[in-house]
Design a binder for these strands. Structure first.
Length: 275
DNA sequence: AAAGCACCCTGTACGC
DNA sequence: TGCGTACAGGGTGCTT
Protein backbone atom coordinates (compact mmCIF):
# COMPACT_ATOMS: atom_id res chain seq x y z
CA UNK A 1 0.00 0.00 0.00
CA UNK A 2 1.81 3.10 -1.13
CA UNK A 3 2.24 5.56 1.71
CA UNK A 4 4.59 8.51 2.06
CA UNK A 5 7.85 6.52 1.74
CA UNK A 6 6.62 4.63 -1.31
CA UNK A 7 5.33 7.78 -2.99
CA UNK A 8 8.57 9.59 -2.15
CA UNK A 9 10.51 6.71 -3.70
CA UNK A 10 8.49 6.90 -6.91
CA UNK A 11 8.89 10.68 -7.03
CA UNK A 12 12.66 10.45 -6.59
CA UNK A 13 12.79 7.90 -9.37
CA UNK A 14 10.88 10.21 -11.71
CA UNK A 15 12.64 13.44 -10.73
CA UNK A 16 15.80 12.54 -12.60
CA UNK A 17 13.92 11.42 -15.71
CA UNK A 18 10.84 13.50 -16.39
CA UNK A 19 11.68 17.22 -16.24
CA UNK A 20 12.13 18.51 -19.78
CA UNK A 21 10.12 15.71 -21.34
CA UNK A 22 6.81 16.35 -23.02
CA UNK A 23 3.71 14.25 -23.55
CA UNK A 24 3.37 12.98 -27.12
CA UNK A 25 0.32 10.75 -26.71
CA UNK A 26 -2.17 9.72 -24.06
CA UNK A 27 -4.01 6.39 -23.85
CA UNK A 28 -6.81 5.93 -21.34
CA UNK A 29 -7.73 2.28 -20.83
CA UNK A 30 -9.97 2.69 -17.77
CA UNK A 31 -11.86 5.95 -17.78
CA UNK A 32 -12.70 6.10 -14.11
CA UNK A 33 -9.02 6.38 -13.28
CA UNK A 34 -9.33 9.95 -14.58
CA UNK A 35 -11.12 11.82 -11.82
CA UNK A 36 -11.01 15.18 -13.65
CA UNK A 37 -11.49 16.57 -16.17
CA UNK A 38 -13.38 14.16 -18.42
CA UNK A 39 -11.06 11.60 -20.05
CA UNK A 40 -11.22 13.20 -23.51
CA UNK A 41 -10.33 16.63 -22.15
CA UNK A 42 -7.68 15.09 -19.92
CA UNK A 43 -5.95 13.54 -22.92
CA UNK A 44 -6.35 16.60 -25.13
CA UNK A 45 -4.99 19.05 -22.56
CA UNK A 46 -1.99 16.90 -21.69
CA UNK A 47 -0.85 16.59 -25.29
CA UNK A 48 2.34 18.52 -25.98
CA UNK A 49 2.76 19.68 -22.40
CA UNK A 50 6.29 19.82 -21.00
CA UNK A 51 7.04 18.56 -17.51
CA UNK A 52 9.05 20.97 -15.38
CA UNK A 53 9.16 19.23 -12.02
CA UNK A 54 8.06 16.21 -10.02
CA UNK A 55 7.24 16.43 -6.33
CA UNK A 56 5.17 14.90 -3.56
CA UNK A 57 2.53 16.18 -1.18
CA UNK A 58 1.20 13.63 1.30
CA UNK A 59 0.50 10.55 -0.80
CA UNK A 60 0.01 12.60 -3.98
CA UNK A 61 2.52 12.56 -6.80
CA UNK A 62 2.61 16.02 -8.37
CA UNK A 63 3.77 16.66 -11.94
CA UNK A 64 4.13 20.35 -12.80
CA UNK A 65 3.92 21.45 -16.41
CA UNK A 66 5.39 24.49 -18.10
CA UNK A 67 1.89 25.80 -18.79
CA UNK A 68 1.03 25.86 -15.10
CA UNK A 69 -1.18 22.82 -15.40
CA UNK A 70 -0.62 20.17 -12.74
CA UNK A 71 -1.10 16.43 -12.90
CA UNK A 72 -1.94 14.82 -9.57
CA UNK A 73 -1.60 11.06 -9.19
CA UNK A 74 -2.81 9.05 -6.21
CA UNK A 75 -1.81 5.39 -6.12
CA UNK A 76 -4.34 4.38 -3.44
CA UNK A 77 -4.00 0.63 -2.88
CA UNK A 78 -2.37 -0.87 -5.91
CA UNK A 79 -1.42 1.97 -8.20
CA UNK A 80 2.00 2.04 -9.83
CA UNK A 81 3.59 4.80 -11.89
CA UNK A 82 6.33 3.18 -13.91
CA UNK A 83 8.66 4.61 -16.51
CA UNK A 84 9.34 2.14 -19.29
CA UNK A 85 11.36 2.18 -22.50
CA UNK A 86 9.75 2.02 -25.93
CA UNK A 87 8.76 -1.48 -26.91
CA UNK A 88 8.83 -2.72 -23.35
CA UNK A 89 6.13 -5.39 -22.90
CA UNK A 90 3.25 -3.70 -21.16
CA UNK A 91 2.41 -5.27 -17.83
CA UNK A 92 -1.03 -6.14 -16.53
CA UNK A 93 -3.65 -3.76 -15.21
CA UNK A 94 -2.61 -0.78 -17.29
CA UNK A 95 -5.13 2.04 -16.85
CA UNK A 96 -3.44 5.07 -18.42
CA UNK A 97 -0.33 5.46 -20.55
CA UNK A 98 1.47 8.75 -21.10
CA UNK A 99 3.81 8.53 -24.07
CA UNK A 100 6.86 10.78 -23.82
CA UNK A 101 8.70 12.60 -26.58
CA UNK A 102 11.74 10.33 -26.09
CA UNK A 103 9.53 7.30 -26.79
CA UNK A 104 9.49 6.12 -23.22
CA UNK A 105 6.16 5.63 -21.47
CA UNK A 106 4.90 6.65 -18.08
CA UNK A 107 2.44 3.88 -17.34
CA UNK A 108 -0.21 3.99 -14.62
CA UNK A 109 -0.97 0.43 -13.61
CA UNK A 110 -3.61 -0.29 -10.98
CA UNK A 111 -5.02 -3.71 -10.30
CA UNK A 112 -7.88 -2.61 -8.06
CA UNK A 113 -8.73 0.55 -9.96
CA UNK A 114 -8.81 2.74 -6.85
CA UNK A 115 -6.01 5.04 -8.02
CA UNK A 116 -6.86 8.43 -9.50
CA UNK A 117 -5.34 10.99 -11.87
CA UNK A 118 -6.38 14.64 -11.83
CA UNK A 119 -5.31 17.33 -14.27
CA UNK A 120 -5.93 20.76 -12.82
CA UNK A 121 -4.71 24.37 -13.00
CA UNK A 122 -5.31 24.67 -9.28
CA UNK A 123 -3.84 21.76 -7.29
CA UNK A 124 -4.52 23.49 -3.98
CA UNK A 125 -8.18 22.57 -4.23
CA UNK A 126 -7.00 19.00 -3.70
CA UNK A 127 -3.77 19.45 -1.73
CA UNK A 128 -4.98 22.37 0.36
CA UNK A 129 -6.79 20.39 2.98
CA UNK A 130 -3.89 18.07 3.73
CA UNK A 131 -2.24 18.24 7.13
CA UNK A 132 1.45 18.99 7.66
CA UNK A 133 4.24 16.97 6.09
CA UNK A 134 5.74 14.78 8.80
CA UNK A 135 9.28 15.35 7.50
CA UNK A 136 8.97 19.11 7.03
CA UNK A 137 11.18 21.33 9.16
CA UNK A 138 8.19 23.08 10.67
CA UNK A 139 6.60 19.82 11.77
CA UNK A 140 8.07 19.91 15.23
CA UNK A 141 7.20 17.92 18.31
CA UNK A 142 5.70 21.12 19.67
CA UNK A 143 3.43 21.60 16.66
CA UNK A 144 2.43 17.96 16.89
CA UNK A 145 1.50 18.49 20.55
CA UNK A 146 -0.66 21.47 19.65
CA UNK A 147 -2.42 19.46 16.94
CA UNK A 148 -3.16 16.66 19.39
CA UNK A 149 -4.34 18.92 22.19
CA UNK A 150 -8.01 18.43 22.95
CA UNK A 151 -8.47 15.68 20.40
CA UNK A 152 -10.55 12.85 21.79
CA UNK A 153 -10.29 10.52 18.80
CA UNK A 154 -8.06 7.48 18.89
CA UNK A 155 -4.45 8.27 18.13
CA UNK A 156 -4.36 5.64 15.41
CA UNK A 157 -7.35 7.05 13.57
CA UNK A 158 -5.94 10.57 13.87
CA UNK A 159 -2.63 9.55 12.34
CA UNK A 160 -4.46 7.97 9.41
CA UNK A 161 -6.48 11.16 8.85
CA UNK A 162 -4.74 12.94 5.96
CA UNK A 163 -6.05 16.31 7.06
CA UNK A 164 -4.40 15.80 10.45
CA UNK A 165 -1.00 14.66 9.19
CA UNK A 166 -0.31 13.94 5.53
CA UNK A 167 1.22 10.78 4.13
CA UNK A 168 0.89 8.16 6.83
CA UNK A 169 -0.96 4.92 6.11
CA UNK A 170 -1.76 1.75 7.96
CA UNK A 171 1.68 0.17 7.80
CA UNK A 172 3.74 3.05 9.14
CA UNK A 173 1.16 4.13 11.72
CA UNK A 174 1.28 0.66 13.25
CA UNK A 175 5.06 0.70 13.17
CA UNK A 176 5.39 4.19 14.65
CA UNK A 177 2.96 3.52 17.50
CA UNK A 178 4.82 0.35 18.39
CA UNK A 179 8.16 2.14 18.20
CA UNK A 180 6.83 4.86 20.51
CA UNK A 181 5.18 2.29 22.85
CA UNK A 182 1.77 3.91 22.52
CA UNK A 183 -1.48 1.95 22.44
CA UNK A 184 -3.45 2.63 19.23
CA UNK A 185 -6.69 3.30 21.13
CA UNK A 186 -5.32 6.11 23.29
CA UNK A 187 -7.22 9.36 22.79
CA UNK A 188 -4.93 11.74 20.90
CA UNK A 189 -5.20 14.46 23.51
CA UNK A 190 -4.31 12.10 26.35
CA UNK A 191 -0.68 11.69 25.32
CA UNK A 192 1.88 13.15 27.70
CA UNK A 193 4.53 15.55 26.48
CA UNK A 194 7.05 12.72 26.60
CA UNK A 195 4.77 10.42 24.64
CA UNK A 196 4.15 13.05 21.95
CA UNK A 197 7.90 13.49 21.72
CA UNK A 198 8.41 9.75 21.36
CA UNK A 199 5.70 9.43 18.73
CA UNK A 200 7.03 12.39 16.76
CA UNK A 201 10.50 10.86 16.76
CA UNK A 202 9.16 7.42 15.86
CA UNK A 203 7.09 8.71 12.93
CA UNK A 204 10.06 10.50 11.43
CA UNK A 205 12.46 7.63 12.09
CA UNK A 206 10.21 4.99 10.55
CA UNK A 207 9.43 7.08 7.50
CA UNK A 208 13.06 8.04 6.94
CA UNK A 209 14.21 4.44 7.31
CA UNK A 210 11.57 3.24 4.85
CA UNK A 211 12.55 5.90 2.31
CA UNK A 212 16.19 4.84 2.69
CA UNK A 213 15.15 1.30 1.73
CA UNK A 214 13.03 2.40 -1.21
CA UNK A 215 9.70 1.69 0.50
CA UNK A 216 7.84 -1.46 1.48
CA UNK A 217 6.91 -4.14 -1.03
CA UNK A 218 4.81 -6.77 0.74
CA UNK A 219 4.49 -10.37 -0.39
CA UNK A 220 1.60 -9.37 -2.64
CA UNK A 221 4.09 -7.25 -4.59
CA UNK A 222 1.74 -4.34 -4.98
CA UNK A 223 4.28 -1.57 -4.65
CA UNK A 224 6.86 -0.91 -7.34
CA UNK A 225 9.41 1.85 -7.68
CA UNK A 226 9.34 4.00 -10.82
CA UNK A 227 11.78 1.62 -12.50
CA UNK A 228 9.68 -1.42 -11.61
CA UNK A 229 11.90 -2.75 -8.81
CA UNK A 230 10.60 -3.68 -5.36
CA UNK A 231 11.17 -1.77 -2.12
CA UNK A 232 13.40 -3.30 0.55
CA UNK A 233 11.79 -2.23 3.79
CA UNK A 234 9.42 -5.19 4.34
CA UNK A 235 11.97 -7.25 6.36
CA UNK A 236 12.36 -4.25 8.67
CA UNK A 237 8.69 -4.15 9.65
CA UNK A 238 8.49 -4.94 13.35
CA UNK A 239 4.79 -5.43 13.93
CA UNK A 240 2.69 -4.92 10.81
CA UNK A 241 1.05 -8.14 9.59
CA UNK A 242 2.82 -10.13 12.31
CA UNK A 243 -0.16 -11.36 14.33
CA UNK A 244 0.82 -13.98 16.94
CA UNK A 245 4.49 -13.55 16.17
CA UNK A 246 6.66 -12.57 19.14
CA UNK A 247 7.05 -8.85 19.78
CA UNK A 248 10.64 -7.97 18.82
CA UNK A 249 10.96 -6.09 22.10
CA UNK A 250 9.43 -8.34 24.77
CA UNK A 251 8.49 -11.56 23.02
CA UNK A 252 4.77 -11.40 23.80
CA UNK A 253 2.54 -12.41 20.87
CA UNK A 254 1.55 -9.53 18.63
CA UNK A 255 -2.17 -8.73 18.88
CA UNK A 256 -4.46 -7.78 16.04
CA UNK A 257 -7.56 -5.66 16.59
CA UNK A 258 -9.73 -3.54 14.31
CA UNK A 259 -9.64 0.23 14.73
CA UNK A 260 -11.77 2.34 12.42
CA UNK A 261 -12.24 -0.64 10.08
CA UNK A 262 -8.46 -1.05 9.76
CA UNK A 263 -6.34 -3.96 10.82
CA UNK A 264 -4.26 -2.85 13.78
CA UNK A 265 -1.22 -4.62 15.19
CA UNK A 266 0.27 -3.90 18.57
CA UNK A 267 1.98 -5.45 21.57
CA UNK A 268 -0.31 -5.53 24.61
CA UNK A 269 2.78 -5.74 26.80
CA UNK A 270 4.75 -2.81 25.37
CA UNK A 271 1.81 -0.61 24.36
CA UNK A 272 -0.37 -0.29 27.42
CA UNK A 273 -3.76 1.41 27.50
CA UNK A 274 -3.07 3.14 30.78
CA UNK A 275 -5.39 5.39 32.73
C1' DA B 1 -15.76 16.22 16.85
C1' DA B 2 -15.99 11.39 16.47
C1' DA B 3 -17.33 7.00 14.85
C1' DG B 4 -19.53 3.77 11.77
C1' DC B 5 -20.69 2.23 7.31
C1' DA B 6 -21.19 1.74 2.24
C1' DC B 7 -18.73 2.28 -1.75
C1' DC B 8 -15.16 1.72 -5.13
C1' DC B 9 -12.26 -3.01 -6.88
C1' DT B 10 -10.06 -7.64 -7.37
C1' DG B 11 -6.77 -11.22 -5.85
C1' DT B 12 -6.32 -14.36 -2.27
C1' DA B 13 -7.66 -17.45 1.23
C1' DC B 14 -10.84 -20.09 3.07
C1' DG B 15 -15.06 -23.33 3.90
C1' DC B 16 -17.89 -26.69 1.99
C1' DT C 1 -11.88 -29.26 -8.51
C1' DG C 2 -14.82 -25.66 -7.99
C1' DC C 3 -17.91 -22.60 -6.28
C1' DG C 4 -19.26 -18.97 -2.96
C1' DT C 5 -17.95 -15.74 0.37
C1' DA C 6 -15.17 -12.90 3.48
C1' DC C 7 -11.42 -9.98 3.63
C1' DA C 8 -7.82 -6.55 2.75
C1' DG C 9 -7.17 -1.42 2.27
C1' DG C 10 -7.08 4.62 1.10
C1' DG C 11 -10.14 7.87 0.62
C1' DT C 12 -14.77 10.04 0.11
C1' DG C 13 -19.24 10.83 1.44
C1' DC C 14 -23.07 10.11 4.19
C1' DT C 15 -25.40 9.10 8.64
C1' DT C 16 -25.60 8.76 13.53
Amino acid sequence: MPELPEVETVVRGLQTQLPGRSISAVAVRWKRTIAAPKPAAFARRLLGQTITSVRRRGKWIVLDFESGAVLLAHLRMTGQLILEPAGYPEGDYTRVVLHLDDDRRLRFSDMRKFGRLILTPDPETVLGHLGPEPLANDFTSQQFRHLLAGRRGRIKSLLLDQSFVAGLGNIYVNEALWEARIHPLRPGGSLSVAEVERLHTAIQAVIRAAIDEGGTTLANGNFRQADGTAGRYAPHLQIYDRQEEPCPCCGAPVKRITVGQRGTYFCACCQVLEE
